[in-house]
């Protein structure tokens, strides 16, 4: 990557509140260029919220999100995100990628090459002219990845990209993520699948009920986390003794 990175990303005492509920509680962390960062934690821990805060889709109620390398540039232009339920535009697979590239002001002749490449690498080459909305869920997830790949982001956020996917589809997605990481894209990803975290993580952030309880190297974390709740989580225990507030269906947290 020739342009200087917008990383490191720093969160300073970031809190997020909605309907008088504190969903993220005074979170401070520094995320550096390089290692693949995997955020784990039980459902409702605030993982998805944290990603969207970092990506700039929502603003913190308190605290600051800082991109120290941005140097006056718009950090959003160097990031991309794969949503848990990516929205496909009602047009062809290729046109979906073309749309994203056009938003980044990539000239048309270059776009063709980038689209072909991205489709090739996600195994969607044969689907270029198929309407995106008729793809299966797994294929749509690959298209979401292809769409971000074509953008060559410095930082890629992924929000549970393989939730509800079968092992084969999960494997394809994980391979693509690793390939993007090898090409220099910083990966920041949430999952509640511990196996996946072990396979992909260089460093781990453990989130529970809106608090960052541990931030450690993957090897050290999986060998034995310092935090008691993290240890329980790794053992596969239900964190039942913590009072959990149920969120009504349909609300996004």
């Amino acid at each position: 990557m020739t342009t200087p990175s917008i990383l490191p990303l720093e969160l300073r005492a970031v809190s997020f509140e909605r309907d008088r509920q504190r969903l993220l509680k005074s979170l401070s962390v520094r995320i550096a260029e390089g290692p693949r960062t995997i955020i784990i934690g039980p459902n409702g821990a605030g993982k998805s919220l944290l990603l969207r805060l970092c990506h700039g889709l929502i603003a913190p109620s308190e605290g600051e999100v800082l991109w120290h390398g941005a140097q006056g540039r718009d950090p959003l232009r160097f990031q991309a995100m794969v949503m848990q339920r990516p929205v496909m535009l009602r047009r062809s697979v290729a046109a979906n990628i073309d749309f994203a590239l056009s938003l980044h002001r990539i000239p048309r002749p270059q776009r063709r090459r980038l689209i072909a490449e991205a489709l090739e690498r996600t195994g969607l080459g044969a689907f270029a002219r198929v309407p995106a909305r008729v793809l299966s869920f797994g294929e749509q997830q690959r298209l979401a990845l292809a769409r971000t790949w074509a953008l060559r982001p410095q930082v890629l956020f992924l929000d549970e990209p393989t939730a509800n996917l079968d092992p084969a589809a999960t494997h394809v997605i994980e391979d693509a993520i690793l390939a993007m990481a090898r090409e220099g894209t910083k990966i920041i990803m949430t999952t509640h699948d511990l196996g996946q975290a072990r396979r992909l993580a260089d460093e781990v952030m453990f989130l529970h009920r809106g608090r960052l309880l541990e931030h450690a190297e993957a090897a050290a974390f999986f060998a034995g986390p310092e935090n008691e709740l993290a240890r329980a989580f790794l053992r596969g225990e239900l964190l039942w003794w913590e009072r959990r507030e149920l969120t009504p269906p349909g609300t996004r947290v």
Binding site: A94, A95, D98, R108, R111, R112, I115, A128, R129
Partner: peptide
């Protein structure tokens, strides 16, 4: 490739 991305028109 041209036809791939000419969906708008």
């Amino acid at each position: 490739m041209r036809t791939l991305v000419s969906g708008r028109r």
